[in-house]
Each structure stands twice: as structure tokens, then as C-alpha cells.
Design a protein around this nucleic acid. Structure first.
Length: 561
RNA sequence: GCGCUCGUAGCUCAGUGGAUAGAGCAUCUGACUUCGGAUCAGAAGGUCGGGAGUUCGAAUCUCUCCGAGCGCGCCA
């Protein structure tokens, strides 16, 4: 890549200056950075190396810069000229072929353009959503779903082996599941005209009525005649399996597929939870107090107080199960675990890390992303969205109203670190204003021009077969610059676990494309054939990059709109 | 009270310790017998919550104050 080349040039120049006795340094510079400057007038790339070397060299920054410049291969390769600017920046101006030639690379690599191998050998498991099976997937879950899925795409694009996983809290210890089963049984009774008492804190959502109606259709009054215990067990089982099924469907409609749905109950059934607890005891990380077994989380992590592993009633807590679950992840060969949690779970980070450490694994290999809360607004009023009260807003409703692409893109617009305000009316209205259409239109527009060319009898040439030096218009170079920056942008977004950078970037490319389209006609009358052909290859390259980008975001790239 | 997180344009939000802090929406003004206008050109809009520190340089790092959200169970 071009930046690596320039960094090498800089390192060599510094070394040469040192050898010539012009720079008195004890060691070569540690990190040499070269970045695109914000302002185009400062060249194609800029480096702050002279400023960082000023102090060790005992010289003013601009003087350091001048001594480095003498040893840079200016004019020989891709570097047209280098200038000293401001407090001591080195501004690099490159020859235009560095941009024009990226067309060759884009065409050649096609769907792989933008991918890299920086994460080869990483086996990553991303666990996300993991909503309790007590209700449908909500719009709030949608944020984690969109984030986790495109994050997985991103890391895979960098060469990592990635697996998506959903953890189902279906343990028999779960009070919520008991409540859910009771609520479902009550609804079932209602369907049959039986006057069973409404359970305390019942789940009130309509989805339970739908399931109850299905059960009546399927089983008639069979479960009205059995014992309460038998009924409770049957409804717990049926409620869970049907909710999980629905969640799976909702997420698939959102374009998110998990490689595995992991049942918490399986950890109890296999004895893994029990074994982990024994292991923690054997390693001396657990102790008994008040009839319960405690984990020394304060010693193993920065937790505020120790946590209970086994209650005095001999039931294991989720702390034990979570530790067992993460041991299972490591034992399956994953060397990097990423969990996406809501910010309301921030208090559990340390105790999970303690559990991992207590079993002898490296807690730093488990990264926990906390997405800030989503504040739902409706008619200017905040919506609480409680599952129990039944006023959650299902993701499926949003998807059917504004479509999958818009819902996905909307959720990736901002960083997970900011509290998102999600205005439902606005989101729906934005079906025609959502920025996703801007990006998709850029793709459709490229396709349209290419299709139009074929209709006119002009076959779209290969980038290697056109005179790329004709591409000198400001808007052409601006667009090519974006296309050239794309691979670095992918690498950065993956490093920072920040797919939202890509939504910003695809808008920039869209803008550059639309401007190019306005000012650089290809198929209009009077455009010479060689220029026309060169520009057609730009449309084709842009089509490829926009498509690759949207694919990473989980958004479709339509050829017509 | 303790802990975690967040305060950037009217609104929703970007912003790798770098040069003059940027988009979209909303507002206002222009460009349509278009390579499909879901587009483009332009205007206006800011004490980056306040203060101090670190350094060649801070929206970005540290401290402190103010404001908002979340969490502080032998619930999950």
C-alpha cells in the first residue's frame, strides 16, 4: 500500500541523514506516521515526523524537516514534491498515476478489493443480541444485531475466522422463564374460556396470546386436564422453543444469521457448570460464607465485591454459568471473544472477567463492547419499552415498515458509544430520506451508466486498456482518492471495532460519485471516445467499491431503484 | 453515597494528539427537453458543558466541577 511505501521512504531518509551526521539520534524513530491531511492544499499525505524528532535531535522542527527532505527520493518514484509547512509538517505531493492506477487494482481484486490479511490466524467468536427468550426481538436489540453482524463481516474481511453466536438464557433456575410459562398458561386458559387467575407480574405482550391460540389449535384442551406441575413444565418448554423460533425468524428478516444458538441449559445438562465450580474451588478462588459459595472476584478483577457462585439453596448463579460458557468458547479454539452487551450490564464486566481468570484463561482475550442505551421516542415522548408490560417495539415491525436496508443502515449511523435517540416516526418517515438511499443510489447510478453504455453499443473497457492519464479533472481525482482510501478505511474500522465509520465513508464516496457524475460526463455528446472509456472504468470501479462497502454493512446494492 | 458511561451547529450525530472542528436533517437561495433530480451548487448556523494541567500542538490524554443516563440482589 502507498502509505507503507512512504513510511519506508521516510525511515530510509532519516537513516541516511543520521549516517551523514546531519541528525544526531540515539535510536531510529519508533512510530512513523503518515496521514492524509484534512485540507487538500497540504498535499496527498503529511507526516509529523520532524516535530516528533525535534526534541531528541535538539533542532527546531523545520530544520529537522529540511534535513530529512534532502534524502527523500523526490521526483524519482511516485513522489512529485515534498514541502515543509506550518510548524514542521512534511507534505507529500504525489504524481497522479498513484490514483489512476488504483483502477487496475480494484478491477483485478473485484469483490476482494478492500480485504486484507492483517487478522489471519485470529479465531474470533462474536456473541451478540442474546436476548432473553421472554419476548420478540425489539428495535433496541436491533442496534446490537446490526453492530455485531457487520463487525463480524469486517473482521472476516481482515482475514479473521469469525463465528456469530446467540446465547439463550433458558436455565431452569431462571425466574423469568417461570413467569413466562405461567403467563402463557394463563393465556391458554383464557382461550379455552377458563377462569384461571392472572399470575403476578405477568408478561402482558400480545405475542403470548398468539402462541396460546396456536397451542389451542394444536393440542386442544389437553393441558387443561393435567396437573399444574406438568402444565408448568410443558409450557416452559413450549414457550422457550417458540420464542427462540420467533427470535430467529425476526433476526433473519433483519439479515442476521447466527452460526450457533447456544443454550445455557446445555451447560447444566453436561455438568460443565458443576465442573467449573470444582475447578475454581481447586484453584483456591472460591470460599464458603453464610451457607453460600463465593467467588473472589475482587481479587481476580476490579469488581467491588465478591459474587455468589452457588446460593445457599444449592442452585448455581449465572456467574457460574457464564464462566462455564466462556470456558467453553475458549475450549472450542477461539482465541478472541467479543461480547456485545447493553450499557445497563456494565456492572457485570468485572465479574465475568473474574470468572474467566478463575478458570485459568486470559480475561484480556474477552472484549466486552457496551452499547449505550437506545432512547426510544414516540410523538416527542420517551417510550419505556418493557417486555413485561408488553410495550416493546418489535424489530420485525420496523423492518416491515421501513425495510431491512434502511433499518440496518440507520442502526449503524452512529458509534455505539453514544446514547442513540431513536425517533420512531422519523425512522419511518426516513424511508425516503434515510441516508442509505444516497449510498444505494450511487451504486444504481454507476450501474445505470454502464448499462446505458452497452445500450449505446459502447462496450465497457478494462481499466488496463484505457488512457488513465486523461483522468485529471478535480472531481475525478477526488473520487479516485476515496476509492484508494477504502482498504485503509476497512482496516481502521476493524481495528477500532467501529463499523459506523463505514457508513460515514460510503456517504463520502456517494458524494464524490454524484459530483463526478455532474461534472464529468462520459456518454454525453461531444465527449471524446478515449475520455469516455476512461470515465466508464471509473464508474465501474466505484460500482465495485460501493457494493463491497454495502455488503460489509449488511445492506443490499441495488442495480436499479 | 459509590461505580461505569456520555455532554460537539436549532435537531440527529461524525471527528486517528496535528494545520481554518465537519456531515445529514431542518431553514433560505439557485440548477430540470438529466449519461434516471432518491442529484448538484451556494448561504446561514460553534465560548467542542465550565475550569485547570500535560506538550511544539488538546474536541481528543489527566484532574476537578456542573449536567444527563445506567448500574449497585444468594434475579438473569
Amino acid at each position: 500500500m502507498i502509505t507503507e511505501h512512504l513510511i519506508t521512504c521516510l525511515r530510509e531518509a532519516v537513516a541516511s541523514a543520521q549516517k551523514a551526521g546531519e541528525l544526531d539520534l540515539t535510536s531510529p524513530p519508533a512510530d512513523v506516521s503518515i496521514d492524509p491531511p484534512r485540507n487538500k492544499e497540504f498535499g496527498d499525505f503529511a507526516s509529523n515526523i520532524a516535530m516528533t524528532l525535534a526534541k531528541p535531535a535538539g533542532l527546531p522542527p523545520r530544520e529537522v524537516a529540511a534535513r530529512i527532505i534532502k534524502y527523500l527520493p523526490v521526483g524519482q518514484g511516485v513522489i512529485a514534491r515534498v514541502e515543509i509547512a506550518g510548524p514542521g509538517f512534511l507534505n507529500f505531493y504525489l504524481k497522479p498515476h498513484w490514483l489512476q492506477d488504483t483502477l487496475l487494482e480494484i478491477e483485478e481484486r473485484d469483490a476482494f478489493y478492500g480485504t486484507n490479511r492483517t487478522r489471519l490466524g485470529e479465531k474470533t467468536l462474536i456473541e451478540f443480541v442474546s436476548a432473553n427468550p421472554t419476548g420478540p426481538i425489539s428495535v433496541v436489540n436491533g442496534r446490537a444485531a446490526a453492530l455485531g453482524d457487520s463487525l463480524a463481516n469486517l473482521l472476516a474481511a481482515c482475514g479473521a475466522e469469525v463465528s456469530r453466536e446467540f446465547y439463550i438464557n433458558d436455565a431452569l433456575n431462571s425466574l423469568q422463564l417461570e413467569k413466562l410459562a405461567q403467563s402463557l398458561a394463563w393465556r391458554y386458559g383464557q382461550q379455552l374460556g377458563l377462569d384461571w387467575a392472572m399470575p403476578e407480574d405477568a408478561y402482558m405482550g400480545e405475542y403470548l396470546m398468539d402462541i396460546a391460540a396456536d397451542l389451542v389449535k394444536e393440542f386442544g384442551d389437553r393441558y387443561a386436564k393435567v396437573s399444574e406441575e406438568e402444565r408448568q413444565a410443558a409450557f416452559r418448554e413450549m414457550a422457550t422453543s417458540r420464542m427462540v423460533e420467533q427470535q430467529r425468524r425476526d433476526l433473519e428478516a433483519f439479515g442476521v444469521r447466527f452460526d450457533r444458538w447456544f443454550y445455557e441449559s446445555s451447560l447444566y445438562e453436561s455438568g460443565a457448570v458443576r465442573r467449573c465450580i470444582e475447578e475454581m474451588k481447586a484453584r483456591g478462588h472460591a470460599y464458603e460464607k453464610d451457607g453460600a459459595l463465593w467467588l473472589r472476584t475482587t481479587q481476580l478483577s476490579r469488581d467491588e465485591k465478591d459474587r455468589v457462585l452457588v446460593r445457599s439453596n444449592e442452585k448455581e448463579t449465572y456467574v457460574a454459568a457464564d464462566a462455564a460458557y466462556h470456558k467453553d468458547k475458549f475450549d472450542r479454539g477461539f482465541n478472541r471473544l467479543i461480547n456485545i452487551w447493553g450499557a445497563d450490564h456494565h456492572g457485570y464486566v468485572q465479574r465475568l472477567k473474574a470468572g474467566i481468570a478463575a478458570l485459568g484463561y486470559d480475561p484480556d482475550r474477552c472484549e466486552i463492547i457496551l452499547t449505550q442505551m437506545v432512547l426510544l421516542m414516540r410523538d416527542g415522548e420517551p417510550v419505556r419499552g418493557s417486555k413485561r408490560a408488553g410495550d416493546i417495539i418489535p424489530l420485525a415491525d420496523l423492518v416491515s415498515e421501513i425495510g431491512r436496508d434502511a433499518a440496518r443502515f440507520y442502526n449503524l449511523l452512529n458509534s455505539y458509544e453514544t446514547t442513540a435517540t431513536f425517533d420512531l416516526e422519523l425512522a419511518k418517515k426516513q424511508s425516503n430520506e434515510n441516508p442509505v438511499f444516497y449510498a444505494q443510489y450511487a451504486h444504481a447510478r454507476c450501474c445505470n451508466v454502464l448499462r446505458r453504455a452497452e445500450e449505446m453499443g459502447v462496450s465497457v473497457p478494462q481499466a488496463g486498456a484505457v488512457n488513465r492519464e486523461l483522468l485529471t479533472h478535480e472531481k475525478e481525482l477526488d473520487l479516485l482518492r476515496r476509492l484508494a482510501d477504502y482498504p485503509e478505511e476497512v482496516r481502521l474500522a476493524a481495528d477500532m471495532l467501529a463499523p459506523h465509520r463505514l457508513t460515514a465513508f460510503v456517504r463520502e464516496i456517494g458524494q464524490a460519485l454524484h459530483q463526478f457524475y455532474e461534472e464529468c460526463p462520459a456518454l454525453k455528446e461531444g465527449v471524446p471516445a478515449d475520455l469516455r472509456d476512461a470515465r466508464l472504468t471509473v464508474f465501474n470501479a466505484t460500482r465495485i467499491v460501493v457494493r463491497n462497502l454495502l455488503t460489509l454493512l449488511g445492506v443490499s446494492a441495488p442495480e436499479r431503484m
